[in-house]
Design a protein around this nucleic acid. Structure first.
Lengths: 229, 229
DNA sequence: CGCCCATTTGAAAATAATCAATGGAAGTGG
DNA sequence: CCACTTCCATTGATTATTTTCAAATGGGCG
């Protein structure tokens, strides 16, 4: 009875907060399917705004979503990126505490929160999978706080890339988001992000097929740069 | 049926992650009492280490606990401070993802995780209160990520003080932790923390009765400094 | 009373931000 | 289909904030 372990994602260099549904939960969450509706959202389009009444959960099918918070003077923080299989909204109270926006054209399943919560209330398997998602998110959030609080620019970028690499299916990493997005996610400016990428490329640690696609050429070196974690 | 709202803590300037048991849950969590053992821990003493098998939950009765993560080269990050009524450990997987240490002589209740989880498994009220604690923690964690990623030193300190003030029972704020602790919590150095306090004192925004006790003299000014959130 | 350790304060150094300009790719419209 | 436009990324130079290094102060505890 493995109530706790999440084989799916390693936490070694892993401050990625998004929580995919763990594989052993697949059957449980698939019971949600009949309350979900498939929707598509265009690039840079909002899913919901910060402060909106939180009436839906979402699961990403294809594409990428970011969660954003805006400070009073317009500074932006990206809380997380959500990719295929990631579940969005479990942490909401009455309202969403962040905006959800599509980074690229994205397909999602939208669930009525009311229905799903009711379903979870008398299906312990569903409830448990939700708790597990929250638990994983919480650990990842703590890892990312340490990253934001204590790592320098290159360490943050290296951790970020390793993180994405762990999620990726093949050798290359998709970066559907802009450099500004990455900066807002890592607590850096676009320029600092760009310089870090240039440095990694110059040092032969990554290769860049295009702006939005990189491959790790020297994983050991990248891990050394991120070793702080 | 208020399944969501947490009247207890306002999130306005509130990146404090620790989650107190919401008041409406008190009766539910009090059913835990007979599985808990009261323990006391001395100043700077460990409760558990990062990586230890997570066999217990804890609730602070009196005193203060910090959660710490160490980076490879010794840099330290404090994930959270836990005060009276805060619950510790719900986010643990098989092992603790951070160390728990008493900031001052502290009294806690230690719960067998196995027993509590079993209890939660067939008492929906307990399970629900746990989910609520995790949900609150997750929101607070996101707020604090934005703080760490996007706020400057003075904004972080101001937010921190307002946060503690919201939890405080009377007009003055207890700071049982050291300046280094505050720095490790806010992603700053001890010196930067100290300079911020000196500045606030100089500007008449806070008054310092002692190193570990301050009073907010000009709340509006402090809120203006923290307004970013 | 005196020692020790945390805090405060100061000066110098470093990291990242800001300001500014150039380069390049994707998409639009003629 | 090509040229134009626009937006994003890159690179460079300068500035600012915070860190680091160093010294002095002071409060609490034995």
């Amino acid at each position: 009875m493995q109530s706790i372990a999440t084989p799916r994602r390693e936490m070694t260099h892993a401050p990625m907060v998004a929580a995919a549904v763990p594989p052993q939960m697949a059957s449980a969450t698939s019971s949600l399917d009949h309350v979900g509706v498939v929707i598509t959202v265009g690039r840079e389009q909002p899913l919901f705004f910060e402060g909106d009444a939180a009436e839906c959960y979402y699961k990403v099918v294809k594409g990428a979503v970011r969660s954003c918070k805006l400070l009073a003077d317009g500074r932006r923080h990206i809380g997380d990126f959500f990719f295929a299989d990631d579940f969005i909204g479990l942490d909401a109270g009455e309202t969403y505490s962040f905006a959800g926006e599509a980074v690229m054209p994205t397909t999602l399943i939208r669930y009525s929160r009311r229905k799903v919560d009711a379903l979870a209330a008398h299906d312990p398997r569903v409830a448990k999978s939700f708790v597990e998602i929250m638990r994983t998110s919480l650990c990842a959030a703590h890892d990312r706080m340490a990253l934001l609080g204590r790592m320098n620019a290159m360490e943050r970028i290296a951790s970020f890339l390793l993180n994405l690499a762990d999620r990726a299916t093949d050798a290359h990493i998709d970066l559907p988001m802009t450099r500004t997005d990455i900066g807002d996610y890592l607590g850096l400016t676009m320029e600092t992000v760009s310089r870090a990428f240039s440095q990694l490329k110059h040092d032969g640690i990554i290769e860049q097929r295009s702006v939005h696609e990189v491959a790790i050429a020297d994983r050991d070196a990248l891990e050394a740069l991120a070793e702080a974690a």
